[in-house]
């Protein structure tokens, strides 16, 4: 394809990204570096601030779900579970955002509908983990649309296996952030991940690979223009896709462990659908 077409594709995907994802990297980095003035995030660093933070989240009308076990809501021991349920709610909403973004990739909605489902099923957790990176630094992560900063130490202090959930994402994100991608680079990278032709059970691989190839060309050109001094950035970025698959596999296994060990835990139906028979 001509360079002009590739640039038009990059612009289109960047616009879709801005339209569907409310917290951009630019905004997240501004919050994390304290450039938002009075709107500093609420910091959760222990159980007390978690409880205060929960109220803060509720005040801001973050969508809650009906499946939350009401019986254990007031027990300190259930704090992790309750927090986990909030995370699930936000994740389900994020899956909806990623689906809208996927539908905006030229050619995606013309693929076989079953293949669209397969691409989302296998791609969406990878996309969500990549999208966490801009929200993180070595000390913690923004949550609740950037209204809250939760410290890494606090997440590590939760009881097992909750304490094991985020640490691999921090390790990945801190390394990923050294690539210094911006939102327009991210938009293309997310589209490349979604258009992976090697997902299990795909019916018609060829059109998916053709779409991915075009987006890969657009990404390569974008990185050359946007990061002229960053050598091998394109290759480094593609290598991240291998690490990502391992993180998703480990994440799904942890969720499956949680399902077995936590009697009060129920998984959001959408997330259940995605994780069932995944890896």
């Amino acid at each position: 394809p001509e360079a002009a077409d590739l640039r038009a594709l990059s612009r289109h995907l960047y616009e879709a990204y801005l339209k569907y994802f409310p917290l951009t990297k630019a905004k997240a980095r501004a919050i994390l570096s304290g450039k938002t003035g009075d709107n500093a995030p609420f910091v959760i660093h222990d159980m007390k601030s978690l409880m205060e933070g929960e109220q803060f989240i509720n005040c801001k009308q973050i969508p809650t779900q009906e499946h939350q076990p009401q019986t254990s809501c007031n027990i300190l021991d259930a704090v992790e579970l309750r927090f986990f349920h909030s995370c699930q709610s936000r994740s389900a909403e994020a899956v909806r955002e990623v689906t809208e973004f996927a539908k905006s990739i030229p050619g995606f909605i013309n693929l076989d509908l079953n293949d669209q489902v397969t691409l989302l099923k296998y791609g969406v957790i990878e996309v969500l983990i990549i999208m966490m990176a801009p929200l993180m630094n070595k000390d913690g992560t923004l949550i609740a649309y950037g209204q809250i900063f939760m410290t890494r130490e606090f997440l590590k202090s939760l009881r097992k296996p909750f304490c094991q959930m985020m640490e691999p994402k921090f390790e990945f994100s801190v390394k990923f952030n050294t690539l210094e991608l911006d939102d327009s680079d991210m938009a293309l990278f997310l589209a490349v991940i979604i258009l992976s032709g090697d997902r299990p059970g795909l019916l018609n691989v060829k059109p998916i690979e053709q779409l991915q190839e075009t987006v890969l060309h657009a990404l390569e050109l974008q990185l050359k223009l946007n990061h002229p001094d960053s050598l091998q950035l394109f290759a480094k970025l593609l290598q991240k896709m291998t690490d990502l698959r391992q993180i998703v596999t480990d994440h799904v296994h942890l969720i499956q462990l949680l399902k077995k060990t936590e009697v009060d835990m129920c998984l959001h139906p959408l997330l259940q659908e995605i994780m069932k028979d995944l890896y």
């Binding site: 969508p63 389900a92 909403e93 899956v95 909806r96 689906t99 539908k103 909605i109 509908l113 079953n114 669209q116 489902v117 989302l120 099923k121 139906p269 959408l270 659908e273 995605i274 069932k276």
Partner: peptide, 20 residues
Amino acid sequence: KEKHKILHQLLQNSTSPVDL
């Protein structure tokens, strides 16, 4: 199709954020 009912709905625009 039944196994991935919500994903199908999301793709076909028949699930609103409220349903989630």
